[in-house]
Structures are given as C-alpha cells and as structure tokens.
C-alpha cells in the first residue's frame, strides 16, 4: 500500500494570524494518479500547495514524499526530490529568455549539466508548444504563454509530482481545451498530477479523484461525480454549474 502512495500529508495545519488556511488536512496522493482539488476562494488551496512545495511552513503536521519525511526541507530540495509546481499567478524570470527560464529547471531542479540540460529544456519547450518562442524575453509573453512557460519550467525539473495551481484560469475556451489535452498527455505518460482549479469542467476532464477544501478543511473526497453531488459540496459551490 505505502509504495503506491507518492505523497502523504498528515494533520497539516497552518494559520495566518487567526485565519486558518489548513486545518489538520490528511491527504494521500497515489503514484500515477490525477487528483483534483476544488474549493471556494480562500479555502486554502494555494496554501496547501505552498505547504507541499515548501514555501509555507506548517504549524503542525507532517509531509512524506516517496517514503521520506520532507516537512523541514526547503523548497529547492523538494524540487530536486521531484516536486514541481506552477504558480497561480505566473512568475517568469522576466529578463531571461523563455529558453533560459526552462534551463533553470533543467540545471537546478533535474540536476542536469551541459548538453543534457539543454536537451531537457528543449524537450520541455517542445512538449508545451513553446519551442518557437525559445528566444523571446519571458517578460514579453501573453498570459497563455506565461502559463505554458510555468508548465515547461516545471517539466524541465523532471518531476514525479506536478502541482498545478489554477493553470486554466483566465484562458479562453479554446485555449483551455488545448491545455487540458496537454495535461492529459503528461498524465498518460505516467506523471502524477495534483491540480487546483476553479474551472471545474477542465479539471473533471482530467482527474480521477476529487478533494474539496473549505476554510482549510477537507470536506469531501472521492470520485468526481459523487463528490460533486454531495450536498455539502453543492452548498459550498452554490452558483457554480457542473457541466
């Protein structure tokens, strides 16, 4: 059983002042699965990602990745261990080219050198359809291109767990379809994906399991259809239609 679990989060809590962002969250992510996380604004979704990626220090609880306790590891060590993330608001290195942005991940995340790193960076650009923009300064990209760059950089670190933070937000319907195809393809190649998303229909096109957060608490978990039909979830999501 435990070999099937890639990431385990136990009793994870975090408060900002008196506002709880995570309240004793327990969660297991299985190898090769695609897990979706939904919840209203301020439910603690991004905080949970921060806790897993290491930007946010937990007040209590434990994070185990691949059988190793990483609760006290800094972000760069977690990335090197195989956890990659995309930021909700893209954070490109604006003075570097697209290619250099991705090269950072290949060099320091995947620990590659020389030609090998260059090839990995180019492969990540090709996988995300960014190869034609390789020479462009990252500061000049459009929002969709920035989101793709987030994904390309994450892939260049050769992750085993990919954390996607609202990567479909702000995209047109056609762009969204493209992105879903891309993520579905990565998942099909064996990558474990955890995806936080407000655009629920995009999420449901990919994930096999759904977790719902509300006020830092995990209120529902399971297969997408029953979870979305759960009265508590419907209450939380009043006004958001399930397609």
């Amino acid at each position: 059983m435990s070999e099937q679990v890639l990431l385990r989060v136990e009793g994870l809590s975090k408060s900002f002042g008196s506002v709880p962002a995570a309240r004793s969250v327990d969660l297991a992510v299985h190898r090769g699965e695609a897990l979706g996380i939904i919840g209203p604004n301020g439910a603690g979704k991004s905080t949970l990602f921060g806790l897993i990626a290491g930007d946010v220090r937990p007040d209590a609880g434990r994070i185990v990745f691949d059988g190793r306790d990483i609760t006290r590891d800094p972000p760069h060590r977690r990335c090197r261990a195989g956890i990659a993330r995309s930021w909700q608001i893209p954070r490109p290195f604006v003075h570097l080219s697209v290619y250099e942005n991705v090269l950072v991940g290949a060099y320091f995340g995947a620990g590659l050198r020389g030609r090998e790193a260059e090839r990995a960076a180019l492969a990540a650009l090709a996988d995300t359809g960014m190869d034609r923009l390789a020479d462009r300064p990252a500061g000049s990209l459009t929002i969709l291109q920035r989101k793709r760059l987030e994904l390309a950089r994450a892939l260049a670190t050769r992750p085993r767990l990919l954390l996607l933070d609202e990567i479909a937000g702000g995209l047109t319907e056609a762009e969204c379809v493209e992105l879903v195809e891309l993520i579905r393809g990565l998942h099909a190649q064996g990558l474990t994906v955890v995806w936080v998303e407000h655009v629920v229909h995009a999420l449901l096109a990919v994930v096999q399991r759904l977790v719902v957060l509300d006020f830092g608490e995990l209120i529902a978990e399971g297969e997408p259809a029953p979870v979305m039909a759960d009265p508590r979830v419907q209450e939380v999501y009043l006004g958001i239609h399930l397609e």
Binding site: P74, H76, R85, W87, L96, V104, G105, F108, T157
Partner: peptide, 19 residues
C-alpha cells in the same frame, strides 16, 4: 543563470531547485 533567476524572482527560483 541561478543568480539571474534569483534577481528576477527568488521564490520561483527556489521552486525550480535553485539553492
């Protein structure tokens, strides 16, 4: 390259494996 990445965005650099 790590230094240039740190200049532009420290948190993003750390998230990509830069110490």
């Amino acid at each position: 390259l790590a230094l240039a990445a740190v200049r532009d965005d420290e948190r993003a650099a750390a998230g990509l494996g830069v110490d």
